[in-house]
Design a protein around this nucleic acid. Structure first.
Lengths: 136, 136
DNA sequence: TGTACTGTAATAAAGTCAATTACAGAATGA
DNA sequence: TCATTCTGTAATTGACTTTATTACAGTACA
């Protein structure tokens, strides 16, 4: 979760979960998040690829959840927006002639995997329905 | 851990831990990480502020650990490089007129705190000595 | 007293991310 | 059928962030 995409995707999903199956337009969603509608459509497109959202083109189109909110784990949202590693992506190119530099990316990766595992464990325990339930 | 500073700081500390109290110059360290020496000196300055490193100016100067490697927890490194929140810093300005937008930052913050706690717990369990021990 | 360092500021260059513009295509309904 | 209202997506711009670079004062040593 390096990026601002996680909160955006979660915001979108929360809106959809709260709207009881009604189709929401990207303009409406963008208005709630206060970002550009094109960015919303990009995130929706991504979430659709991960099977979390369905969308309908054309007039009166929009987006809706692809499955019930209690069947969507926050870990799925994480996976959907995740490309790079959690802690500073290893775009380092350490000196291969240095005994430490030569190996450090390997050990950093192990550390990141370990931590990411702990993070995913937490996210897996919470569903979108759980998250929405906190709102009053 | 939004940034590439964590791996840089950990790299620096690992080099120092592996050099048995010898002073290492910023140029040497920069050569191992393959980044600019000024950036190394900035990170060293920061780590010094957090009591993890000592440095000596002038000829034959350089940096060394301020305490034994088994007394440095990776959580301390995390705290030293950390400014922003873990998952996408909440620079979102959601629409306060939307019932979801109005509350979401609060709930996102709770979620982030929960996850950051899990992350810190893992980092606290590993010392710099443990990390270095993985290198052969 | 020259050399080899650190410490730090200031600037430039590179890279990243979001906003914007633009437009094709789909569904609706008058 | 055809104007309208949406999505989907590409391309560009602009804002911002990060890193590299340059510059130089200060410190320690031999």
């Amino acid at each position: 979760m390096n990026n601002g995409r996680f909160p955006i995707s979660l915001h979108i999903l929360t809106l959809l979960a709260s709207s009881a199956g009604e189709l929401l337009s990207s303009d409406y969603i963008a208005g709630s998040i206060n970002i550009n509608p094109v960015l919303v459509r990009k995130e929706i497109s991504n979430l659709r690829n991960f099977g979390l959202i369905e969308s309908k083109e054309g007039k009166n189109g929009g987006a809706t959840l692809a499955k019930p909110a209690d069947k969507i784990r926050l870990s799925e949202v994480y996976h959907a927006v995740q490309q790079a590693s959690l802690l500073g992506n290893s775009k380092n190119k350490p000196n291969p002639d240095c005994p430490i530099g030569k190996q450090i990316n390997l050990h950093l990766d192990h550390l990141y995997e370990d931590i990411e595992g702990a993070l995913l464990h937490r996210l897996e325990k919470m569903s979108l329905a759980d998250f929405l339930r906190q709102f009053q």
